[in-house]
Structures are given as C-alpha cells and as structure tokens.
Design a protein around this nucleic acid. Structure first.
Length: 281
DNA sequence: CCGACCGCCTGCCTGC
DNA sequence: TGCAGGCAGGCGGTCG
C-alpha cells in the first residue's frame, strides 16, 4: 500500500484521531515487527499526549508531550484502523468475518475513546521511540532526502542527488536519500509523465558541475503532480486501475497524447518497472 | 560507487 | 480441490 501519498492519507486519519489525545493503553501483541520494539515502549507512551502527527518521506512521526517522538513506518503491508470503543464492542459477526485480526500487532487506546490499531501481515513495518533532540540522528531519518512536495525540492535539489551517479534513473528515484517518499509505483508514474526513460543514467539529468538539465526540471514537476494527484484522489477512485498511467498496465496502449506505444515491463534492482518504450527517452 | 543478490514475512494469484 | 511457484507497493545488508 504505502508510498508517500498513502502515508499522507494515513497521517491525516491518525491526526484527527490522536492529536491532543493521551495514550491510555498500549497493547503489544508481539515483541517485534521488522525490528524489536524499543525497551519500555508501552510504558513510555502511556499517559503522553500527542502534540502533532507529521510525515517525513514514508515515516510517520508522533510528537509527544514527553518530548519523545514515536517513529512509525508501514513497510509494505502496514495500515492503521481507527474505531470507537463502542464500535469495537458492538461489532457485527459479518464484519468480524471480513476483518483479519490475526495481524493486529499494536493497539493504542486513546483518551478520546478511539482505538488505533496497527495491522501488518508481512511485518515489514516498524515502530521506534526516540528523544526529539535525537530525531535527526535517527538512522532512518538522518540522511533522508528532501520532501518532494516542499519548495526545497526543485530541479537543483534533484540534480544534486543525480550528479555523477551512474545508477539507472528509476533506481535513483527509489533511493530515499535522493528524494524521500517515492516507491516503486510513483517512480514509474513520474518518469512516464516526464517522458524520461527509467534506464538512463541518473547523471544524465545534471551537468558535470551539477546544474539541472531540462529533463530534470520536467521530472521534478512530474513527481509533484503525480504525488499531489494521488493524495487528493477521491475515495471512490482510489482503487481503480485507471489511477495509474503505467503501473500494472503492461500490454496496454500508452496514454500519452499522440503516442502509439505499448506499456512494457522490465526488471530493475529486483523490482518491476513499467514504462512506454516509445515516448520515454 | 555500483549492480546484483539475499532476507525479512504472509497473502494471493496462477498453472498444473 | 490441492499444491507449488511466483509475485507483491520497503528496506537494509553483503559481495564482487
């Protein structure tokens, strides 16, 4: 599920459920996800108020009244469910059947009466708790790249991440140090919108001295457009195949106006890449 | 620095 | 209907 747009939507949901509320109960159904929960995790959360819920790349950061920060990552299959306590008690059997509780690993009961449940079948997600003043030293966040939707992410910033790098452009977009929050889907989507081949070297977007070339400007614009659109997609459109231009559209006609190409699929760095061999140069 | 590969896990889809 | 194999949107590691 989760690249930047999906994580941003989760953030908004959690923000309304958790900000200004206290952790009343913290239930861990196991000792680890991708990594162990830190020592005293539940105890350090209990009684703390959530001051703010922010996102950094694909990470969610809950800023607590204790000046600790709860760092959360959804991995590949992680998601949060928000329910009222009465809704939990009165759940209907048919809904029970549809709901897979087996992978409910963490349950926060908030002072608002809402419960926030983290469910993650593959357990590639993680949670950590760090002092706010050490947040910038957190191994996952210390060297992370710019926020793609911020003003600071411009052609110069992308060029700086690409200069002299021999890796494929698609692989560079997946590198969270170049730009934060882009995953396999939106890397393919942005490259298609920008008309750039996923196979060209990242270094071709910049001059040797790091000045952005025209394709770099187009790619920055495309990244912002693709991510913004995905964030604002209506609920009813979110799971429609048409939400993507190329991802999972192998064998279909290219949607670029005037292009007669067919969407192809390739492998890069162990991941599938979807692209149009005709209009992506 | 780079590409290729592996491991972490479970679920789902395909083909036999 | 069962089973094996391949694949999945992330990330961190090793090796040559």
């Amino acid at each position: 599920m989760p690249e930047l747009p999906e994580v941003e939507r989760v953030r908004r949901t959690l923000e309304s459920a958790m900000v200004d509320a206290r952790f009343v109960r913290v239930l861990l159904n196991r000792e680890d996800l991708r990594q162990p929960f830190p020592a005293g995790f539940a105890r350090r959360l209990r009684g703390q108020t959530v001051r703010a819920l922010v996102r950094r790349g694909k990470y969610l950061l809950a800023e607590l009244s204790s000046d600790d920060v709860l760092v959360m990552h959804l991995g590949m299959t992680g998601w949060f469910r928000v329910e009222t306590a009465s809704g939990l008690a009165g759940r209907k059997p048919d809904r029970d059947a549809a709901l897979d509780n087996r992978h409910d690993h963490v349950v926060f009961t908030m002072s608002s009466g809402l419960t926030v449940t983290f469910n993650d079948p593959r357990r590639f997600g993680m949670m950590d708790l760090v002092a706010a003043r050490h947040l910038t030293k957190h191994p996952s966040l210390a060297t992370i790249g710019p926020e793609p939707l911020s003003r600071r992410f411009d052609a110069a910033a992308l060029a700086a991440g690409c200069v002299n790098r021999r890796i494929a452009l698609k692989v560079a977009l997946l590198d969270q140090h170049v730009v934060a929050g882009i995953g396999n889907i939106y890397a393919s989507e942005a490259l298609h919108l920008a008309g750039l081949s996923p196979f060209r070297r990242a270094s071709t977007l910049a001059t040797r001295s790091g000045q952005p070339r025209p394709g770099c400007v187009r790619l920055v614009t495309a990244i912002k457009a693709v991510l913004r659109r995905a964030i604002s997609l209506k609920e009813s459109d979110r799971y429609r195949a048409s939400r993507f231009r190329v991802y999972d559209h192998e064998g279909e006609h290219c949607s670029t106006p005037g292009c007669r190409g067919t969407i192809a699929r390739a492998w890069q760095a162990g991941r599938s890449t979807f692209y149009c061999p005709v209009c992506q140069k």
